[in-house]
Amino acid sequence: MTLSPAEAATGADITISHVRKTFETPRGPIEALAGIDLDIAPGEFVSILGPSGCGKSTLLMALAGLEPATSGHIRISGAPVLSPRRKTGIVFQEPTLLSWKTALQNVLYPAEIAGQRKADHAPRARALLDRVGLAGFEDQRPRGLSGGMKQRVALCRALVQDPDLLLMDEPFSALDAITRDEMAELMLDLWSENSGRTAIFVTHSIHEAALLSDRVIVMRRRPCDVLADVPVPFGRPRRMDVVDTPEFTAFSSHLRGLIAEAMGKTEAQRHV
């Protein structure tokens, strides 16, 4: 299938250096990012894992160019990120579909905003919807789609401009457990060839981080920075049944230990 992520000739490479973000509040400044340094290679699928309030979504919004960092630099493929870039696709926590548009029209929305002819992009949009199992639902309004279907439409919308970087902000957290598994399977299928576009996946699910990514960045609270940078020991193509292996269990347990540390729990508290 030509629409596999591999078609992106080269993914973006990302350099994050000394990135800080402070929010001013009436009760004083809050530090949401306390100095982040990260390098992400082209084509890598990186999960950012951490407890809530660790700044992982803030980091993603800074990468998206929506919430600029207070200090430090973010470079994507060499260029500093000062505003949203066209070659970045974003999947938000909520599907955020426009309720008055059909699934197909929602997928074409980025082309509409870019002032491109919709007819030129319609075949690709249809093929993407087909790829995620929504053939026959092109003309449905969001009201007629289930939560998982809506998020798949949102994924197609993020991919329609053929981005070299895909940012995902807890994209499955609003879905039920069975649908989440379905989405994870779809992601594994889309990334079955380990090349192409770079992906950054923010999650608080150890299971999803271990299952989907090539590398897991664990963030902590107070201070909000990177606690650990762990390569994932499973290759691609990867299948769902990797979760049944002892290696997966061991790796998940390793991540769980890191999360506990990220939340500031002591060794003794962990075993209560």
């Binding site: 949203p84 066209r86 980025p110 905003i113």
Partner: peptide
């Protein structure tokens, strides 16, 4: 969220 989506597309 809808406004944020369109801002992310540089609308």
């Amino acid at each position: 969220e809808m406004i944020r989506l369109s801002r992310s597309l540089s609308a």
